[in-house]
Design a protein around this nucleic acid. Structure first.
Lengths: 341, 341
DNA sequence: CCATGTTGTCGAAGCGTTTCAACACGCTAG
DNA sequence: CTAGCGTGTTGAAACGCTTCGACAACATGG
């Protein structure tokens, strides 16, 4: 492996000059630059990242803590990851993958100076990683919104507004009796940030507008969907509008509604909260509020990169939800009265 | 951040002694070891990985090239990734995530000495990454089986045997007219290793045993499944046994079969090639051949670690497929005649 | 023409580890 | 009693890069 000295020798300059050509931190005369670049090309020189990290205290690596299994739908996770990776590449950074259950990993990679910044997914309301992250010399960005961010930066879809928006759409299309079919119980139980927030927004919107709103967690299985739908329909048979915030349960919920004699898009409305492609992959293309995983991942990287020098204050960015109407919306029983709202 | 010198001073030894305590490469007297360990704990010392990499030429990082989207089912990918990450941790290694479309990433990461080894997923028959990998100083392990491994190590489920086993199961349960519903056309088209191999095994077993075997690629959507199932059933209405090697299409294939009047597990057999949990998540628990993603990922790591010192020769490991019979198997029209095979 | 920049390059001092050769010490064998 | 050995420890030399300060060489304004 060629070193910077080899390049310097070949280009007949000092190694510091080579370094400056590479980093652009000092001006270099065009002829020198050319010679150096040629030497680099000829030798196939690649800087040794370890040495660089040692001298510059920058690693060109971002740590990403992602939940690799659990109740969360993997395809959604992947979108976040893809967003992070691709935006990181634009900042000339690679991504080191940490898993949820490797809680000590944060400290290890940070204290060992393996990463320049850390991005954390699947944040819970009271996340035990937060104090650890706060103590780091590297900046950290949370994807999600804990109860107390404690000086950390956060980014996410505004899930509270999402819950409201979904309920509002149902109301405006004439529904009074509505329901939220949410995340699996385990996800609810650990107060995963997004689950809580959709719940809160949905309920608030219902309460403020005299809607009857029920909430039901849902296992992402055919059985789980059946149980949830049946529970809702038995308890409140009037329910005509559903919000489903559970990618994996969605097809089963739709199937069960059909089995129970509901015709989605005709006598029953379903608003999905899920990524674009999931919404389109159903039997009926779903009216949905997109979860823009790639965008959020990308923004997380930008926020982290901005804070590398430690001067920028922390910041929370919530992306406004956008509802796209598709085939699963149906006018509700009160449609006429609401037409001008 | 405390350095090794700080620790040495605190423990009243030289820094090399601290290093040897950490690495265990030289014997250390118990009292000294105790003092050093205490100093480390008190100072919260963490070795600087960059410095370590520079001096020792080991990074404690494994590169993992994974396809982050494409036609491959993400939940399957995640299992592989999870296997890699967790086994890597046991070897005290972290995982650097590279994406499929970042082909230069391999060279960058390897030549920059950011990783000790590289694991590559989603290998194609003629994979253009293979020559690059072969030229590296780090060992590489492929998950999948290219046509020409070129001295690289490979590990995967034996998909050819899987195709055969699936066909054989159908034959032995009395089916003569069988079909393989495979990966999406795009996956087929780029000759993704596993797709090709299942195809090959399935056809070979059919040919050798006078089965009528059709193969149909399948988009992972309701429409795609409908098209595929209809095509098969119209072309060969006698077909009573199906092999489905396409996680995302599976539920839709099952749905379409139902719509076409088939009762899976009664008059129609379906063997799924998919992870365990996918097989169980269907309406009918599926007779299936498991794709043990976690195991394969873990084995890949082991193979890579074994080859760190460059002495071990390359090796190919194919895991034998195991078929688990569940609710989706049905006796075929020729069941009686085959009962003793 | 001199004082005063500007620009381009260099030398050298780190950055925090690992590891090699050397050595001090107490033992054992002869 | 000594030569030789194993054990535990050390000093110093890498490892390959960045960056600071210095300094020529040249241009600029007064």
């Amino acid at each position: 492996m060629a070193t910077i000295e080899d390049v310097a020798r070949a280009a007949e300059v000092s190694s510091s000059t080579v370094s400056y050509v590479l980093s652009g931190k000092r001006s270099i005369s065009p002829p020198t630059r050319r010679r150096v670049e040629q030497a680099i090309a000829e030798l196939g020189y690649r800087p040794h990242m370890g040495a660089r990290a040692l001298a510059s205290r920058r690693t060109s690596v971002i740590g990403l803590m992602a939940p690799l299994r659990s109740g969360v739908d993997v395809s959604v996770i992947m979108q976040f990851v893809a967003g992070v990776v691709s935006r990181a590449k634009e900042f000339e950074h690679d991504v080191l993958l940490l898993t949820q259950d490797d809680i000590g990993g944060i400290e290890r990679v940070a204290a060992g100076s393996m990463v320049d910044a850390i991005i954390v997914m699947d944040v819970e309301a009271e996340d035990r990683r937060i104090p650890v992250l706060g103590a780091l010399k590297q900046p950290a960005v949370l994807i999600g919104l804990p109860r107390e961010a404690d000086g950390l930066s956060c980014v996410d879809l505004d899930f509270e507004a999402t819950g409201r928006l979904a309920a509002r759409h149902l109301r405006q299309t004439g529904h009074r009796d509505v329901a939220l079919i949410g995340s699996p119980p385990e996800v609810m139980a650990r107060h995963t940030s997004y689950a809580d927030r959709v719940h809160r927004g949905f309920t608030a919107e219902c309460d403020e507008n005299a809607l009857t709103g029920t909430v039901e967690p849902c296992e992402p299985t055919p059985d789980g969907a059946r149980t949830a739908v049946d529970a809702l329909l038995d308890r409140a048979p009037e329910t005509s509008g559903f919000v489903v915030h559970n990618e994996r349960a969605l097809p089963h919920v739709l199937a069960r509604l059909r089995e129970r004699g509901r015709i989605v898009g005709r006598d029953t409305s379903v608003v999905a909260v899920c990524p674009h492609d999931t919404a389109l992959a159903q039997h009926v293309p779903m009216t949905s509020i997109d979860i823009p995983g790639e965008v959020i991942g990308a923004v997380a990287v930008e926020m982290a990169m901005t804070r590398l020098d430690g001067t920028h204050p922390s910041e929370t960015r919530l992306l406004a939800p956008v509802l796209t109407e598709r085939g699963s919306s149906a006018p509700g029983p009160y449609a006429r009265a609401e037409v001008d709202v």
